[in-house]
Amino acid sequence: MRTALTILRKDLLLELRTLEMLPAMAMLAVITFVIFHFGLSRDTLSGQLAAGELTVTLLFSAMLGINRLFVAEREQGGFDAFLLAPVDRSAMLLAKATALYIYLALLELVALPAFALFAAPPHMGSSLPALILFLALSNGAFAVIGTFVSAIAVHTRARDLIGPMIGLPLLLPALIATSLGIGPLLTVHASGSPSGKWLAVLALYDLFTALLAYAVFDFLLEE
């Protein structure tokens, strides 16, 4: 636990000093909304279309972060140092997944207002708590799968290709649940209360991915 906190603090400090990832992720999210505007040729969006735009945009921005997650470790020999230290290997998973979760939450701080501004879905205000609940759960799956995929991809030759190729299909269940859960919240007759079914699916998928990643992560760090 202490190890995880140390790694997490190191990561956040590094990001705070270099500002390498977060601005790029936020920029990508905003530009994706603009691209969607021209691609769909709509001034306002509602329902499933709005939900799809939001989830796909967040997914692509998250991919950017996922690709960079272990780059510092690889380039500066952090892996070797970590493996030499007599600490629990799972600490790396915990720290990296938490870091990614925080990045995603910060990304959404920018992306959600931009989404409200550009897509102007109905009932954005009243369904905001439910929307945040969905994103909080989907970030969990994104963070865990992202860390897992990134840890695999960082040791491959085609690093930037392998990550999304494995990550996107694995993220699809979370994407389906988020998108279908958010969709009804953004319709004209939205009630503002979230669908329990999709919240449950997301929570269970979070749990499933977390347990699975915990079980296999050690094998990705061995030397």
């Binding site: 695999i152 491959t156 694995l170 079980a215 094998f219």
Partner: peptide, 10 residues
Amino acid sequence: RYAAVFAIVC
């Protein structure tokens, strides 16, 4: 090793 991890997760 990585292929095995992939096969288990998938």
